[in-house]
Simulated scan of single mutants.
Amino acid sequence: MRLLVIEDEAPMRTALVETLRAEGYRVTSAPDGISGLELACTEGFDLILLDVMMPGLDGFALCRELRKRGRDSAVLMLTAKGQVEDRVNGLDSGADDYLVKPFSLDELLARIRALLRRKDRESTISDEFSLGNARIDLSKRLLVRDGTTLELSEKEAGMLRLLASHPGETVSRERFLDVVWGYHAYPSTRTVDNFIAALRTKLEDDPARPRYLVTVRGTGYRLEP
Rank of each mutant, 00 (worst) to 15 (best):
M12I: 15
S130C: 14
V17F: 05
L109I: 13
R67V: 02
E43I: 00
V180Y: 00
T149L: 10
G182S: 08
E43A: 14
S35K: 12
R217A: 14
G59I: 08
G168C: 09
A134R: 04
L223Y: 04
V214W: 01
L152N: 01
L49C: 12
S29L: 01
E85A: 12
D127K: 08
E7C: 04
L39W: 07
R113M: 01
R2E: 13
L160M: 10
P225Y: 08
A197H: 11
I48D: 01
L199D: 04
T28R: 13
A15V: 11
A198I: 03
R111G: 01
L62F: 05
M159L: 12
A198E: 14
V52C: 07
L50P: 03
M159G: 07
D72Y: 07
S126V: 07
S104T: 11
S123A: 15
R87Q: 14
I34A: 14
R209Q: 14
D8G: 06
P102Y: 06
T19R: 12
R21I: 06
R26V: 11
D120R: 15
L115R: 07
E128W: 05
K202R: 14
D92E: 15
K81D: 10
F129N: 11
G94W: 03
R145G: 02
G158I: 02
S165I: 09
K119N: 09
M77D: 02
G56Q: 08
T149Y: 00
L91A: 07
G70S: 09
T149E: 15
P210R: 07
R64P: 00
N133P: 09
M53Y: 04
L150F: 08
E23G: 05
G36K: 08
K101D: 10
L223G: 09
T124I: 12
R209L: 13
V171I: 15
V214M: 11
Q83K: 13
E122F: 05
V88G: 04
T170E: 15
S104W: 00
G147H: 08
R118I: 10
G59A: 10
G56S: 07
G90C: 03
F45I: 01
R118A: 12
G132P: 11
W181Y: 15
P55N: 13
G94I: 03
M53F: 06
E18C: 06
I112A: 03
G33Y: 02
E43Y: 09
L109W: 00
I136K: 00
V180P: 04
G168Q: 10
S172V: 02
R161V: 05
R87P: 00
V75Y: 00
M53D: 13
E224K: 14
S73W: 02
L20M: 09
T79D: 07
L91Y: 08
S73N: 02
L108K: 04
R26M: 08
R69E: 12
G147R: 04
L115G: 03
G220A: 06
P187M: 10
R113K: 14
L91M: 13
G24W: 10
L143P: 00
E169Y: 09
V144I: 14
D92Q: 14
D51G: 04
T219Y: 12
L199G: 07
L16R: 05
R209D: 14
P187C: 10
T219D: 11
R145M: 03
I34M: 13
G158A: 07
L62T: 12
